[in-house]
Amino acid sequence: MKSLLGKKQLVLKIFFLFMAVNLSAQIKNDPAQFLPIEINGWKAEQSDRLFDNETLYDYIDGSAEMFLSFGYSKVFNRIYSRVNQPDIMVDIFYMNSSYDAFGVFTHSVGKMENEFGQQSQQTEGAIIFWKSNYYVSILCHPETPESKETISKLAGTIDNSIIETGPLPEVISYIPKENLVEESVRYFRHYNWINSHTFISNDNILNVEQNTHGILARYLNENETAVFLLIMYPDETSALSALNKFVESYNEKVIPNQIQQSKNNLWFGIKRIKNFVAAIFESSSKEFSIKILDNAQAVINK
């Protein structure tokens, strides 16, 4: 009898524990629920809206493609209004992972700051940040002193409601840190983003797909500059195939594993390192190029 009662109690305890964890996860993962209905005289008078993969284009036209080029789930939109003040538009994008939130962020800002979330930018009439798998945008146009203060409060509220942070893409851990211009890092999984720092190609000459993880970044050492590209492929065969395609398709003659001078007298080079393709473009010096690629090789082979 005692044993049966004990078992029942154990089952109940496990059940309640499961419910608590589940509920806790739900509350943590929905920052939209923490938005106030009213703030500083602004009120959410219109109905909130949700847009998914199919309807995102209706909401933000061609900008939708940027989100769809990463893993995107939905966006929650709320508009706050106040008489004689601009509307404040809050958008919370639910990306599939922190990688996706980070990726979208790197391509949609002008500079990287740290005031909100894991990274943020504040410009006139706008606060943009990412945290965990969320990409958040708060806009008011034209900006007034009151609206500026209010969007800042809203950003803080949303930031605080997202308790967890999300990991950066694994490929970032393979970027050589020496001479890296940190705020120049761009993450991508669609070939459309490959020209973020310099023109490489209009076409997908490196077989960039959703299962590859690419990074572009600038390097700087006094007067030496370079653009570094690193793509992590699922396996070495894919990486080799991508390298071969690049050699065939690039608009200059390419000799893998060599640093060459391009038509504009700058330096470029490309090599495969295990399941990675690493490349340098627009480098001011051959030695600087070799150093960056050697450092990348050392990190990958560690």
Partner: peptide, 13 residues
């Protein structure tokens, strides 16, 4: 001359 955010607009640019 530059996009910021999901709506692509910022007076700064």
């Amino acid at each position: 001359f530059h996009n910021v955010g999901p709506h692509g607009f910022s007076p700064e640019y």
